[in-house]
Design a protein around this nucleic acid. Structure first.
Lengths: 211, 211
DNA sequence: CGAATACTTGATTACCTTCAATACGCGTGG
DNA sequence: CCACGCGTATTGAAGGTAATCAAGTATTCG
């Protein structure tokens, strides 16, 4: 699937579900006046349209940022599997809970964090998530989002994103060149973002706790 | 339970779960420097700590805004019920998906909507949700949030919230007095907010769809 | 009735957006 | 190989919007 291509669109209900295997994508909403808000970044392993298992239709769109490899399969299939395996059901639910936790962190960022903190926090989140799938090497990882994308994610203008990045570079926190983001000083970056990875927290075993 | 009282706190994992039966509450996060971001408003019927069924601990706190009547019960109990009834499991999952959809709408608000649109949108969301539980009479409902709360929800200063409200009053959209919000012109309010209730969309039947 | 909390208003300041122009990097085709 | 062109990044200047600061007024509650 090529870059900059919609995987699912707002309002749709495709019969097939899609998992991202390789590449980056994002969830986004289009608002009146050509405004766009990016809601989340998707990395390999993320399911694009999980909500359709329990909802009527998508409330937002998902688009690739880079060329992506994806897997599609009939949603009916998972539905059946879920009937057979409550453990799977629970696993998928957990996925949704995690997404919601990330959403909440974004709300906190957009509402009450400074621009600098916001992008620092986003970088921390991505580092953390990408680390979990082994996509970080020596604090370096692919970062294909343009500054415009970044702006639509953190609620800032392109110009201000640019200036914020300059500042972070000047502070020796990061390097961002040729679609590669390097975290130069993770500790200081986390401090600047007031990042605590807790919200990405280790979940609970799939089997119900036995109290 | 009295007003302004924490039901669950960030990082905790109480053994009992709580449902809101009467009154208003909110989810919130505390940030450094005394900043607070409200993440969601809870109305009767909402579960405070649903995530604990699949996560280790809370990633945020929940506090009452008004005196509330709540129901508590051991989480172990739901856990067992879920084992017996995948339909219940699915129902709870759906609840989480809905929460996430509301979160996404807030992200869009905070990131890309004007202050005026933000509070209009929030009012629309609340109207919509409260209507569903029959808590709206002739476009009027209880609205106990202070302007400071409102500010912490929509990411604005108290002063600016106040001015925005004045503007909405001047525009003949609302009345807000003595903790009662009256929607004077729902159509124009929705238009101002660019509100489409789709994201609160009617879910799908609890039983899996049959293709 | 008094104290505390919430709301309102005006003035000033700071930040971020917008506008506008320029520079850079990369792929394409001459 | 170099010139061109497009998308992205960068920079400066100007303007507007919302935050902050600072009173003052209303409401609520004990």
């Amino acid at each position: 699937m090529p870059a900059r291509h919609d995987i699912v669109r707002d309002g749709e209900r495709p019969t097939d579900s899609t998992v991202l295997l390789e590449g980056f994508a994002c969830r986004y909403k289009l608002l009146s006046g050509g405004r766009r808000q990016i809601l989340a970044f998707l990395i390999p392993g993320d399911i694009c349209d999980l909500q359709l298992l329990v909802m009527d239709s998508m409330d937002h769109s998902v688009a690739t940022l880079t060329p992506c490899r994806v897997a599609s399969f009939p949603r009916k299939t998972i539905d059946h599997l879920c009937e057979l395996s409550p453990a799977l059901l629970r696993r998928l639910w957990r996925e949704t809970v995690l997404d919601a936790a990330i959403h909440r962190e974004w709300i906190a960022s957009l509402g009450r964090r400074s621009p600098y903190e916001r992008v620092a926090h986003l970088f921390c989140e991505l580092t953390h998530r990408l680390q979990a799938i082994g996509a970080v090497r020596e604090g370096r990882f692919e970062f294909p989002m343009t500054q415009a994308d970044l702006g639509d994610a953190v609620g800032l203008s392109v110009v201000h994103v640019n200036r914020t990045l300059q500042q972070m570079r000047a502070d020796g926190l990061i390097t961002l060149r040729a679609n590669v983001l390097t975290i130069l000083d993770e500790a200081r970056l986390k401090a600047a973002a007031r990042f605590s990875g807790d919200f990405l927290g280790a979940g609970v075993a799939v089997a119900p706790e036995q109290g």
